[in-house]
């Protein structure tokens, strides 16, 4: 047995695999919201931990790219750290935590707060790409439903929800319609982020490794969250501001401070929060003690 078991290609994947994934990406862009089947490879990280996003990133990344990886909006969550380290190792690529400096952003569960720009690519890690899966577990059936544009069942399901709960209670992975044709799963981002997908300047690519699907939303493309005239789509709102940077109208994480119900809310997007603080914004938690000042 050789001590040097394997030498890996740039960005880990072999060229034949990259070509296969690249072809799938081009078709995905040409058919917005349609899930292109691809021969997903066994990656050196577990299925369900971003193998789809990693394969997409590995197939598009080049030496001139600057990569940012986030999980839950944060650059320092362990799986984001692990994926970033993987690309540093196999592609020797420049990395950043600054949204504005990145050319490729791989994400799990969030879209950055800062508006993305032309030339940026947002790569989503997707666990279950099929938006109809929670209505119908069979691929053979859901494929027909997409082919026939038969989405009535989805509306029935959402309406049942209103009948039972008084509102659409789906809070994340909220289904969208892309360019008026395909119903698409935006991956388990909170529905707070759905409006950011609409007419984005950036290209959005979605990779589902275990389920072997790639799909895409080109820039400047309509992405509409499903709703009803009498029950329009609405996003979460937070009463509080970020305790660290004072940001309002951003997605916040709830942090439990003690066992007496004490909690605070801070930006989920860590880069956004740090950037604001660098620019002098201060939240309640970091503000100089007001009583002392008085």
């Amino acid at each position: 047995m050789s001590a040097d078991l394997a030498t890996y290609n740039f960005a880990y994947l072999d060229e034949q695999t990259k070509r296969m994934i690249r072809r799938a990406i081009l078709k995905a862009i040409a058919i917005p919201g349609y899930q292109v089947p691809f021969a997903s490879r066994e990656m050196p990280m577990p299925y369900g931990w971003g193998t789809g996003g990693v394969q997409v990133t590995a197939s598009i990344i080049g030496p001139e790219d600057v990569l940012k990886v986030i999980d839950q909006g944060a650059d320092d969550t362990t799986n984001a750290v692990s994926i970033r380290a993987f690309f540093q190792k196999v592609a020797d690529v420049a990395v950043t935590t600054h949204t504005k400096d990145a050319t490729i952003i791989q994400t799990r569960h969030r879209i950055p707060e800062q508006k993305l720009t032309e030339g940026q690519v947002l790569v989503y890690q997707v666990p279950i790409p099929e938006p109809l899966r929670f209505l119908e577990p069979r691929e053979t059936e859901t494929r027909k439903m997409h082919a026939l544009e038969e989405y009535g069942l989805m509306h029935v399901k959402l309406y049942e929800d209103i009948a039972i709960n008084g509102r659409i209670s789906k809070t994340y992975a909220y289904p969208v319609k892309v360019d008026g044709r395909y119903v698409m799963d935006p991956s388990p981002t909170p529905k707070f982020d759905n409006p950011k997908m609409h007419m984005s300047d950036a290209l959005q690519l979605f990779g589902a490794g275990r389920e072997k699907r790639i799909y895409a939303v080109p820039p400047h493309t309509e992405v509409v969250s499903l709703d009803f005239e009498d029950y329009p789509f609405e996003i979460q709102t937070f009463e509080q501001d970020c305790a660290l940077c004072g940001a309002h109208g951003v997605y916040l994480d709830e942090v439990v401070l003690d066992d007496k119900g004490g909690r605070m809310f801070v930006c989920s997007d860590t880069d956004h929060c740090e950037d604001r603080r660098e620019h002098g914004h201060v939240g309640a938690m970091l503000a100089p003690n007001q009583e002392a000042a008085e």
């Binding site: 290609n9 740039f10 060229e15 990259k18 070509r19 690249r22 990406i25 081009l26 862009i29 040409a30 197939s59 598009i60 990344i61 080049g62 030496p63 030339g119 290209l203 895409a216 080109p218 820039p219």
Partner: peptide, 17 residues
């Protein structure tokens, strides 16, 4: 490796725009 990556990125950008 790098030339096909560079051509692909142009193709991807071309299809997206």
């Amino acid at each position: 490796v790098f030339q096909s990556q560079s051509v692909f990125r142009m193709l991807m950008d071309g299809m997206a725009r």
